[in-house]
Amino acid sequence: MSERISDETIEYVGILAKLELSQEEKEQAKIDMGRMLDYIDKLNELDTSGVEPMSHIFPVHNVFREDTVTNGDDSQNMLANAPEKKNGAFKVPKTVE
């Protein structure tokens, strides 16, 4: 197992995470972080020379569509059922004094 994690590192990470760790928790965190680093070292041993770098797991395509007006100005039909209208807009009761 990796011995790269010092007590100072665990203290620093605890401060950054705003955690108050007991001595047992600090020792366990040191072991866990060492295992994580060992696993990363193991992953670094893989030959990835033929693998193209990715920015996402799933293929990302342009999801934007052209911004075109499809329904036009339909304000007269929208205002047709309004109980009250004023200057081409809905008229509503005043709610703030």
Rank of each mutant, 00 (worst) to 15 (best):
L79P: 09
E84A: 04
N71C: 13
N62C: 08
G88L: 05
P93H: 13
P53H: 01
G72I: 03
I57N: 11
A80Y: 15
K30H: 04
P59Q: 01
G34K: 12
N44M: 00
V13R: 12
Y39Q: 01
I31A: 07
A89F: 03
Q23S: 15
K91E: 15
I40D: 13
V63L: 11
D32C: 08
Q23T: 12
D47L: 03
T68P: 00
P83Y: 01
K85D: 02
A82T: 04
L16G: 12
G88T: 08
K85P: 02
R4K: 03
D73Q: 04
N81C: 08
N77K: 07
D73G: 11
F90C: 04
S6I: 01
E24T: 05
A80D: 14
I40F: 12
L46D: 03
T48W: 02
E27D: 13
E3M: 07
T95F: 13
D32A: 14
D38L: 11
I40M: 13
M33P: 09
N87Q: 13
E24C: 03
A89G: 09
S2C: 08
L19M: 15
N71A: 14
L43E: 12
G34N: 14
A17P: 04
E66D: 08
Y12E: 07
D47Y: 01
K42Q: 06
G14K: 10
F64H: 11
L21K: 13
D41H: 06
G34P: 13
K91I: 02
A80G: 12
N71M: 12
E3R: 11
Q76M: 05
D67W: 02
K94G: 09
E20L: 10
I31N: 06
T9D: 15
L21V: 08
T70S: 10
I5W: 06
Q28A: 07
A29L: 15
L79I: 06
Y12H: 09
K18Y: 00
R65E: 04
V69R: 09
S49Y: 06
I15S: 03
E3S: 13
E97M: 05
P53F: 00
V63M: 10
D38H: 10
S55N: 06
G50A: 14
L79A: 08
V51N: 01
M78V: 07
K18V: 00
L46V: 02
N44T: 00
S49H: 14
M78L: 11
H56R: 12
E24W: 02
I31Q: 08
Y39K: 03
V92Q: 14
S6T: 13
G34M: 10
E52M: 10
G88R: 09
I5M: 12
F64M: 11
L16I: 09
K18M: 01
A17G: 07
L21G: 14
L79M: 08
G88I: 05
V13C: 12
V96F: 11
L37N: 06
Q76K: 10
V63H: 10
T68V: 06
A17D: 05
M54I: 01
V60F: 04
S49G: 11
R65W: 01
H61C: 04
D7Y: 02
